[in-house]
Amino acid sequence: MLTLYRQESFKLLKKKSTMWITIFLAAVTLGVALMGRLKPALFPAKQFFQSNFLSAPFLVLFMIAAVASTITMETQYGTIKSVLSQRYSRTQVLISKWLVMLTYSIYLYVMTSVLALIAKAIFVNSKFSLTDKGDVHEIWQDWLVTLGSNFLTVWLLLSLVFLMATLFKSSAAAISIGIIGYFALSIINGFLVVLIHLYEWVKWNPLNFLNYPAQLNNPSLSQITKLSTTQLFWGNIGYIALFLVFDWLLFRKRNV
């Protein structure tokens, strides 16, 4: 299992995109913080800090692509034959891919968060203090809550991307569904609100659980989602588990 984890990490590190994504996210974090200093009206530092100076949305898109590619490239290049004809079971192969992507997402979140703190200290330290009052708690607390809850909802999307990549064996399909899922909430949220109002069971659909970070920063949103923050938390965990279990059920029967 450790060998598989090492192999998956090796492949990820050998991709040029892995390095460029780190550079790009670092540049966005530092660049937006700098703009917060130069053009404070257009780039409100205090607000943008919550999303690590806007690197968080890009991070989600890159993670969707990375997750889709970790599954589909094996089929595309035919390397799945080398991977599966080792001593390891399909279950072990899949879990190693999940774990490497989990590690990668944690790395990107930690890297952008540390850089956001550094950028804040360098460029916009005078604009706000981490101990200032935020939406709910102090800014640093809101920031950590937002990052943690975003991480959870991103994994709700990533688990779906894993499933789609295994199902369709196509990066395009998996990435499309991940990105659509990511933007769907903002596009159809209004419609979703009406649907939930009309039929309360609609509140259990996975898109509603993507509201978790927003509801943590604005507890009154529970009147719209019709779910408590605890329910949103466990719902995210439940859907992640469900999508990953379906992914496993498909992958363990995969014929090459």
Partner: peptide
């Protein structure tokens, strides 16, 4: 589902499995 003995086997099937990067 269970094939630890494949440690003892080397294989080239159909065409080489190559990661271009």
């Amino acid at each position: 589902d269970h094939h630890p003995v494949l440690d003892e086997v080397g294989a080239l099937i159909e065409y080489p499995s190559i990661y271009p990067f």
